[in-house]
Design a protein around this nucleic acid. Structure first.
Lengths: 113, 113
DNA sequence: TATATTTGCAACCAAAAGGTTTCATAAATA
DNA sequence: TATTTATGAAACCTTTTGGTTGCAAATATA
């Protein structure tokens, strides 16, 4: 069972769940109401999110409130970041190239690519 | 067949493939050599990456060179970004709270956590 | 106490994912 | 021309995924 953050956010329902609980903690039934699948299905998604640390559950009476731990998404943005540097470097050199062109003829405007 | 960027990067092999071709274009056999699965398996991964725009293929004789289109990862970082703001706000208010304590200060520090 | 509510979890199912082997085809080369 | 190389893709298999229904247990409430 691979259970990493990348796999966790691959599912659109799980992304939606994160969106819901980012703002405020909700119990499992409240989350379920927002979807048209069974509680058991939502529960399984919750479990996956919990197992990779994106979500924490706090018991309160017979209810369990789900709290988002979005910091864990850092793993994702860190991974993307290495390539961002890479592709932005390329875009930067394109940009400076275009600026060079622009400097040569000043009425140029944007060249459609 | 869901075929979005989120699902594409969920698989570790596909993430590795992106890492390989980020630096320079490689043909399919060269990519395959780096893994211990069959060419057909790699080919399928390539296809998925192509279908969601993370990769472009340029024919050159009988070979096909795979070129990374990492800009498409913007979709991922955009999605993460909305939550980044959210959780960094929380961290920022913690930080300013700590600064307030440290400075024993005269400003109205945000203590809402 | 009897009943409602909220949840955990098992058992099961269909479809998707990730892999394999095999064959066909087009391009390069001996 | 005959052969090797690089690839596309079909057929097939196993495991994982995402869903279901149903039941048990614990907490709240009438």
């Amino acid at each position: 069972m691979r259970r990493d953050v990348f796999q966790a956010i691959a599912d659109p329902t799980r992304r939606e769940i994160l969106g819901l609980i980012a703002h405020k903690s909700l119990n499992i039934n409240s989350v379920t109401e927002q979807f048209d699948v069974s509680r058991a299905a939502i529960y399984k998604h919750m479990k996956i999110l919990t197992e990779c640390g994106l979500l924490e559950i706090k018991q309160q009476g017979r209810e369990r409130f789900c709290e988002g731990k979005l910091e864990r998404l850092n793993e994702i943005s860190d991974w993307v970041a290495q390539y961002r540097e890479f592709w932005e470097t390329r875009l930067d050199s394109l940009e400076s190239y275009l600026k060079t062109l622009q400097g040569k003829s000043n009425d140029q405007g944007k060249t459609t690519l």
